[in-house]
């Protein structure tokens, strides 16, 4: 059942990824299994799906999971109130239940004309049993609509990317069916490559200095929330707009609020920083 060339996905022009992640994506595509991505916040878990969709030029469906989301919402919703209302006022054909079945993200992915990329974002936000409720649908790629006595069967198995912040442990049965990858925090070299994709004209000296300060900050174990990639990118943007020079960076950390989002952390670093611009250890 060779279905797709293995080297299908190799990152995109705005998304730099490690070879390991690239392999995991391609394995998931080739084996037609959902790809479960975990990692620190801000390591680009969600952006991965966007990048896959762009690189393979496939449409992307995003299902943002919230604490109130039910597995069924992703399949379909039966709009009873609308039907009752139409029955009352004689709008449209009420006997056709199909008109009141609205497909959720998973349902839309199944009936799409071409293969789509489906992102199930932050699956751990939902109820404990949520992943279990989706097991069968993701496995067999079909589900049953009770009201119309119909099966919705996937025309093309979507490429499913699932992200999780590991706030809750996921059930084993669900994990067994997934391809898993943990996005490790990028090291300085990979990070430099990521930054260059976003700021191609950034001066080398400023980048080097900024990265050094950034990783020094991350090494501070006392921080409650360590700054992440997305915060570094915002910070660099601020440095560029503010016209900060590498020498100024050496003297102290400007725009700290972009990197640290917690007053405890800010106070901790500012104390270090203010005292004669001493380097953060």
């Amino acid at each position: 059942m060779r279905s797709a060339p293995f080297t299908q996905f190799a990152g995109s022009d705005t998304y730099v990824l490690s070879p390991e992640l690239r392999d995991a994506v391609n394995v998931a595509i080739a084996l037609q299994r959902p790809l479960l991505v975990r990692g620190e916040p801000g390591t680009g878990k969600t952006m991965l799906a966007y990048s896959i969709a762009r690189a393979l030029s496939k449409p992307l469906l995003v299902w943002h999971v919230k604490s109130t989301t039910k597995a069924r919402d992703g399949l379909y919703v039966y709009d009873t109130v609308q039907r009752l209302n139409d029955a009352r006022f004689g709008d449209g054909d009420v006997s056709d239940i199909k008109r009141y079945i609205r497909l959720g993200c998973l349902g839309q992915a199944f009936v799409a004309e071409e293969q789509v990329v489906l992102l199930i974002d932050e699956i751990d936000k939902a109820d404990l049993e949520f992943p279990n409720d989706l097991l069968n649908e993701l496995d067999e790629m079909r589900f049953y609509i009770l009201e119309t006595d119909e099966w919705v069967v996937a025309r093309h198995r979507p490429i499913v990317v699932i992200t999780s912040n590991a706030e809750k442990e996921l059930p084993d049965a669900f994990l067994r069916r997934c391809i898993f990858h943990y996005i490790d925090f990028p090291g300085p070299e990979l990070m430099a490559a990521i930054v260059r994709v976003h700021f191609p004209t950034l001066a080398e000296a400023l980048l080097a200095e900024a990265l050094e300060r950034f990783y020094a900050l991350r090494r501070l174990d006392a921080l409650r929330k360590k700054p992440s990639t997305s915060e570094l990118l915002d910070w660099l943007q601020a440095l560029i707009v503010g016209g900060v020079t590498p020498a100024q960076l050496q003297a102290g950390l400007p725009f700290l609020g972009v990197l640290l989002k917690n007053e405890h952390d800010l106070a901790l670093v500012a104390k270090d920083n203010g005292a004669g611009g001493r380097r953060v250890p």
């Binding site: 394995v27 994990l175 391809i179 898993f180």
Partner: peptide, 10 residues
Amino acid sequence: TLARAILVKD
């Protein structure tokens, strides 16, 4: 990486 992605979920 292949075996790790498939076999290890944590």
